[in-house]
Amino acid sequence: MENAQRIKRFADFDEAASYILELLNKQIGINTLFIAKNDGKTNNIIKARNANEVLVEEGSSMPLPQTYCSLSLNYGPTPLVIEDVSKDELTRSMEITKNFTQGTFIGVPVYYSDNTVYGTICGLDDQYFKLSKEDLSTFETMSTLLTYVLELEKANEQIQTLTAPLVPVTKGVAIVPIIGEITASRAEMIIRHVLDKCNEETMDYLIFDVSGVSQINAVVGEYLLKLVSILKVIGVTPVITGIQPFMALKVPHFAAELKAVMIESNLESALKKLGFRLIKESKEKSDPHQ
């Protein structure tokens, strides 16, 4: 129950990956544990934990076909165990095996829910390491857990994007309504989302309506200022509407930094400044007797 509660508090995939390797390290005494991500060509080590000898370095990468991870992917969803990499026919002729006089490898693929490959979760030792059936089952369980975390992160990204959509007004003009609490991770996501859209479509003006924001802090304020600066550089004019008093209190220099930016109290006044007029049409029912 305690583990389940900790899992629920994962901030992102990176944090979950670290915790999973920590759990594996407590249960299985193999020297090196690592999680790798690949795109079909390159194998990137996302997280690594070395007990004694540093056999795998976090952040390193190499061509996928030259790695033991590729063998695990080819083997399928069940754990691939190579008791001695220096003698096994799958590994003895590989370039990477020259670093080992002997050693044990275990690898299990990590999939997204649609069965496309994310990468692998693996164990490696430069000595013979006896893996029990329970150890193999634990690796499979952790692979499944990583799949759940990947899908939760993907769903969260989609939800966060939906809470800051680009609403087109006319060609070159769009509104970005931002609603709810703005965290640092969400601010980063908004920046990526906005810049992707600007790359897809030509934008002249982007109106950011922050009237629906419930919480903000100094770190988030810096992200929003960063977004404003980037937009200016790429030729998009940012417009801010709906700034509330609590924002000025939470981020004191916010208003000062936005002196050169068009700021309006609400969307209607911003659209008027840009040359748009909101016209309410009323239709009266015609009297059939007239």
Rank of each mutant, 00 (worst) to 15 (best):
M1C: 10
M1R: 11
A11N: 13
D12T: 02
F13V: 06
A16Q: 02
A17D: 03
S18T: 15
Y19L: 05
L21A: 00
G29T: 02
K41S: 12
K41T: 11
R49N: 14
V54R: 14
Y68K: 00
P77A: 10
P77I: 09
T91H: 07
T97F: 03
K98V: 02
T104V: 01
F105K: 01
V110A: 12
V110Q: 05
Y111G: 01
V117I: 15
V117T: 14
Y118E: 01
G119P: 02
C122N: 15
D125A: 00
D125L: 00
F129K: 01
K130H: 09
L131G: 01
K133W: 09
T138K: 14
T138E: 09
T141L: 10
M142A: 12
T147K: 10
L150W: 00
L150K: 03
N156W: 10
V173C: 02
I182L: 15
I182Q: 08
T183H: 10
R192L: 11
V194K: 10
D196Q: 11
K197H: 13
E200M: 12
T202P: 03
M203L: 12
D204L: 07
G212Y: 07
S214C: 06
A218M: 13
A218Y: 11
L225C: 15
K226H: 15
K226G: 06
L227V: 01
P238V: 05
V239M: 10
G242R: 07
Q244T: 08
M247Y: 07
M247C: 08
K250S: 14
K250C: 09
E257L: 09
L258G: 06
M262N: 10
I263C: 12
N266A: 02
E268I: 08
R277L: 12
E281P: 01
E284S: 15
Q290R: 13
Q290C: 09
